[in-house]
Design a binder for these strands. Structure first.
Length: 626
RNA sequence: GCCUCGGUGGCCUAGCCCGGUAGGGCAUCACCUUGGUAAGGUGGUGGUCGCGGGUUCAAAUCCCGCCCGAGGCUCCA
């Protein structure tokens, strides 16, 4: 029964690999020079030879790999002896023989074949490509009878543990997902389906894409890489106001705003560890003497900063905040979609260092509340998003009441994922998920308890007794990506409209809050005076001075989602009352200018303000789209 | 990366199956119109039909190759 033993190969389609033999590890090691080697556009085969392998297996392995290379349209391989793939290794002499046989077979098959020396401890750097076939692990069995090929997602699968899915209710009761009655919780059902079975209901284009273009908020930029967007003035205003709101919220909460670099040395020792877990996702920049990667979160910069910080337990919890413009993730081409997912995106990222679990829990609750406040400001209420909460079973058993208290705060049943063991660097994590018109779920706010990175980055504080301690680290994005917030607002508006409602952005985010329309050219001057009076109160007001019909101008104001529209003619000048067309209430109400101003100021109270991002007169505005 | 669909003035789109000198709408420009709450009228400017090759007397249309985009798959600590 030799069937269980085999040749194990981790096959990685790589942009490049660099390796440097450091020292001999076994006596059977081959002779080689201690010089660095770099190979580009290559399929790297990390190979371990197990106990009962014979040389037939080598030929068979190469045959399988040959098929694969055809699919990848690559013809260059590097055979890289890598013992760590197995705990049942063959003797070095046998292994070397098998490896040499592989090399020979590959050359015979016409592959451009490289091989790293056997028996050496080697330092290496690898950049793996981002497509699904890039990472494969294969096991070639020694037993000829057993021809099954096992192909699996190598890196992820190793870390992925069994998890089970439940619905947890505010009263603390827990039901397996399949037993829960979703009648009253359709979006939660969609989230569960999306997370567990990954089914899709719809095949159409996400509606927010058309809206983001038509409203001249934001658009694709063909001159860049996919997933890098251009923001028109109105969109820039909306985005910038949301950024401001999130930042204000975090600063009020006590966070210290910092700024850190967008790119980091690929070979920095503290980072390489972390990076190893996300090998395929970076933009790589070549500088004169080093390779840099663009950050995909604010963690690096903040952790490197905190590593160098002198911290006492008296200063905990310590909150550090950064708005990353941008974070970069080189998502696979097919994964990018409008404002749902980009390759360059803006993400607020707030870390809190806590001394112990007790402090952590208190902090976690505070942040949980802040997150729903932020979403509420965007016009996203509890009914508009769903909570997912994930943890290791062990953590849950010890902290059950804490988990339930979060669900109670949320006030609705939540999706719960329980892992048999701690699978990641966090022990507890939650997200607010928005479900869009295609029934796809996207995470907005999120927070997690990280128990590893303080060690990885050696971040410490001094406790009461003068000892260095590693804190717990909370990672929170209070809003999620800002782009994604806009996506959620637009998708929600579309849904509202489909259900017979009026689509609009919250008043404090509306690029135009009030539009004044003179009934004819004769009243432009009077209209201007009114505009100026409104503007003085920090209200974004504009003037449609184009020589179009009144109907047409009203129509366009509606299409621009302007919430308050005022028409100015002789009657208004005589009476002093303004006919205010309220988009949301869908009626025209007569009021004094002061009344309107007060009403608006009250509605946008406490929210950030920025002035009109375009010329005040519509006749002076270019058309950015269409 | 794979699959599917697509690429025609700034935007939307007809024409493609069945080859015969590219049509409409919006926007833009000019003129008329100066209005009372969701599209006033007339006229004009603007296109080597994504790129390259092939078939043909003739290609937006048929064939081959490539590029770009979108969606799906997959992925999403």
């Amino acid at each position: 029964m030799g069937g269980l033993n085999s040749l194990r190969i981790l096959q990685l389609h790589s942009d490049y690999i660099e390796y440097l033999p450091v020292q001999k590890e076994v006596s059977a090691a081959e002779e080689t020079e201690k010089t660095a080697r770099r190979i580009e556009e290559v399929v790297v085969l990390f190979t371990a030879v197990e106990e009962e392998d014979n040389e037939v297996v080598a030929t068979r392995a190469i045959k399988e790999i040959e098929n694969f290379l055809e699919k990848l349209k690559v013809n260059r391989i590097l055979i890289y002896p890598y013992a760590h793939l197995s705990n049942n290794l063959a003797k070095p002499a046998v292994a070397l023989k098998v490896i040499r046989r592989m090399e020979e077979a590959a050359k015979t098959a016409g592959m451009e074949t490289f091989r790293a020396p056997f028996g050496w401890n080697k330092k290496f750097t690898i950049s793996i490509k981002g497509h699904p076939l890039a990472e494969q692990s294969r096991t070639v069995l020694a037993d000829v009878e057993n021809e099954e090929e096992k192909v699996s997602e190598a890196l992820q699968a190793e870390a992925k543990l069994e998890s089970s899915w439940y619905i947890i209710q505010p009263d603390g009761s827990v039901v397996p997902v399949e037993k829960f009655d979703f009648t009253e919780h359709k979006d939660l059902e969609r989230l569960a389906k999306y997370e567990i079975s990954k089914t899709r209901a719809s095949q159409e284009k996400p509606p927010h894409i058309k809206l983001m273009q038509r409203l001249e908020l934001v658009d694709y930029e063909p001159g860049s890489d996919p997933g890098n967007l251009r923001w028109y003035p109105k969109g820039r205003l909306v985005k910038s106001l949301i950024e401001q709101l999130v930042t204000d919220t975090m600063v009020n909460y006590g966070a210290m705003e910092v700024e850190t670099p967008v790119m980091y040395d690929l070979n920095h020792p503290s980072l390489s560890d972390y990076l190893d877990r996300f090998p395929a996702r970076q933009y790589i920049i070549k500088s004169e003497d080093k390779d840099l990667f663009l950050r995909f979160a604010a963690c690096f910069g903040q952790f490197l900063m905190l590593h160098d910080t002198q911290l006492s337990y008296r200063q905990l919890p310590l909150r550090v905040y950064e708005l990353t413009r941008y974070s970069f993730r080189r998502e696979k081409s097919g994964e990018i979609a409008g404002l749902r997912r980009q390759r360059a995106f803006t993400m607020p990222d707030c870390h809190a260092l806590c001394a112990d679990l007790r402090q952590t829990k208190r902090e976690f609750i505070t942040r949980f509340k802040l997150c729903s406040e932020v979403l509420d400001s965007l016009g996203l209420e509890k009914k508009d998003y769903e909570l997912a909460i994930r943890f290791a079973e062990d953590f849950y058993n010890k902290n059950r009441n804490f988990v339930i208290s979060l669900v109670r705060l949320f006030g609705k049943p939540a999706l719960m994922e329980m892992f048999e063991e701690k699978a990641f660097y966090w022990v507890l994590k939650w997200e607010f998920n928005f479900i869009d018109n295609q029934e796809k779920a996207s995470a907005l706010s999120t927070d997690q308890i990280d128990v590893e990175n303080a060690y990885r980055y050696d971040i410490t504080y001094t406790d009461e007794t003068g000892q260095k301690q590693h804190p717990l680290i909370l990672h929170c994005s209070p809003s999620g990506g800002i782009e994604r917030c806009v996506y959620a607002m637009l998708e929600k508006s579309y849904r509202d409209q489909k259900e017979g409602g009026v689509p609009f952005l919250p008043l404090w985010l509306s690029p135009t809050q009030v539009r004044v329309i003179p009934v004819s050219d004769k009243f432009t001057k009077d209209a201007e005076n009114i505009v100026e009076e409104i503007r003085r109160h920090e209200i974004r007001v504009d003037l449609d001075d184009r020589s179009l019909t009144l109907q047409k101008k009203v129509r366009e104001a509606e299409r621009d989602w302007v919430i308050y529209v005022i028409v100015i003619g002789q009657k208004e000048i005589d009476s002093g009352f303004l006919p205010v067309r309220d988009r949301v209430a869908r009626k025209i109400k007569k009021m004094k200018l002061r009344e309107l101003v007060d009403k608006i100021l009250k509605e946008v109270e406490d929210k950030p303000f920025k002035p009109l991002p375009l010329p005040q007169k519509l006749s002076q505005r270019p058309q950015f789209y269409g």
